[in-house]
Design a protein around this nucleic acid. Structure first.
Lengths: 259, 259
DNA sequence: GGGTATTTGTCCGTATGTATT
DNA sequence: AAATACATACGGACAAATACC
């Protein structure tokens, strides 16, 4: 046996999917039918299907069947801001990028919390661990598909000093928090750093994005800095890898995005 | 049964790993022992372990046992070139970044091929599909751990014109291909665009990186442009997500890397 | 709403193969 | 060569989710 049987079955089905014999959205034969087609036991068929789900080629729905996944048209985020536009709020950038591509973006109103951050958050925002921070959490959708989960963290003294009370208000800031902080506190964000990682989703992310436990999500930490190189904000965004890609432009790179 | 049994067992083992009760590198009890510990069948134990492998928490070795994975110290690549350094070869950047972190980098000598590129490669390099291109492929290691797979593509006329013959020589160019092209052909790369995606590894990548089929790799397409905004090269690099992270600096961001 | 058929999910037991020590 | 440990494959039983009448 060169290849295990479940692997051969998975490959055969994968080829049928790639050639279009099984179209996107189409239902695969049921486990019982596949069992007869391939003359294998149901468990072996199930192993083959598990292989395909972990490749992201099919999805199973209890009580209904197994279906070829609809490939989602990926949304591309430009991490390096357009210099002509200057550094603006991420949400404004997000909304304009999406509308440029003729798709409909939507954000939830922020959920504002006072938290004691995890060690990683505290380290990146450079506050002492054990102190409190303000967190603002938003969900983002494109064409009503859940697209990303974003949480921004700010040092607690921004509100305890009385200077930036609107950080605690559960409302979106259309001009962006960055420009609000400049108006209210004189803090200028002169640059930022994105730290890009990938991992498997936790259970919250699995249910929000409706992805399986062995899918992949990007986790991007964006730290904004003022002129003294002090972090003024940290934004952590989770993007499912099946519907998100990123662009970094350096030097003279043409067009906004496409050739 | 709120949670399925295999899930509870997986969670219990995961907690023991996170708390350090099962140290990195340690061997888990064998399937037979776990079966007695949890009073479950061997198949159920195996389902729990599959869950942990897909999380990347453990790895199984036939004939030996199941082991807590040694977390690899991730290597961080800066995608936005340091402006003081200017735009130099990726390999030079790679070697210097690694040596700055006191780790040992190594590259294989390039494997040079003439290929008819796939549609995606042709589109990104903006050559007509069906025409030939030069490809140069290298494997990169850090401390002898396989770290990335890189393939660069160049338009065929760079050598058919007789101007850049060294592109066909299977030798690393320590100063970088970019500066060679400038010397030899007068082509200046004035900028580049990185396009960042993530996916599961193909079988080549699985065996080279020694990762499982449901791991994740970053696939980064770097297109270099000359002053006419014409692509002069395309570099595709595969990075396993368990040992690679990326940084993008925009505006004034402090330090090279760490706070 | 309820009942039934269909389909996938979980769990068990067993046998045999393959890799490593 | 033998023992150990994981990998593959079979079969069966019941549960849970969904669709349909």
């Amino acid at each position: 046996m060169a290849q295990p049987m479940y692997q051969q079955i998975a490959d055969d089905l994968r080829i049928k999917i790639e050639t279009g014999e099984l179209a996107p959205g189409a239902q695969l034969p049921t486990e019982l039918e596949l069992r007869e087609n391939y003359n294998a036991s149901r468990n072996t068929i199930r192993d083959a299907i598990k292989r395909l789900t972990s490749l992201g080629a099919v999805e199973t729905k209890p009580g209904q069947g197994t279906f070829v996944v609809q490939k989602i048209d990926p949304f591309v985020t430009i991490l390096t801001d357009d210099p002509k536009r200057g550094i603006v709020g991420e949400n404004a950038t997000y909304l304009s990028e999406v509308s440029e591509s003729h798709r409909e973006a939507r954000l939830t109103t922020p959920r504002v919390e006072i938290q004691v951050p995890s060690g990683e958050i505290a380290r990146r925002l450079r506050v002492e661990s054990g102190t409190q921070v303000i967190s603002r959490h938003q969900q983002r959708f494109i064409d009503e598909i859940p697209w990303s989960l974003q949480t921004s963290y700010y040092p607690m003294e921004f509100v305890t000093s009385g200077k930036a009370p609107r950080l605690l208000i559960a409302e979106d800031m259309p001009d962006g928090v960055v420009s609000y902080l400049e108006e209210a506190m004189g803090i200028r964000q002169v640059g930022y750093r994105d730290w890009i990682t990938a991992r498997t989703p936790d259970s919250n992310e699995q249910s929000f994005f409706r992805i399986s436990h062995d899918a992949t999500v990007f986790e991007i930490f964006r730290t904004g800095f003022d002129e003294d190189a002090t972090p003024v904000r940290l934004t952590v965004t989770i993007f499912p890898a099946d519907r998100n890609q990123f662009i970094v432009n350096v030097g003279k790179a043409p067009g906004p995005q496409y050739e």
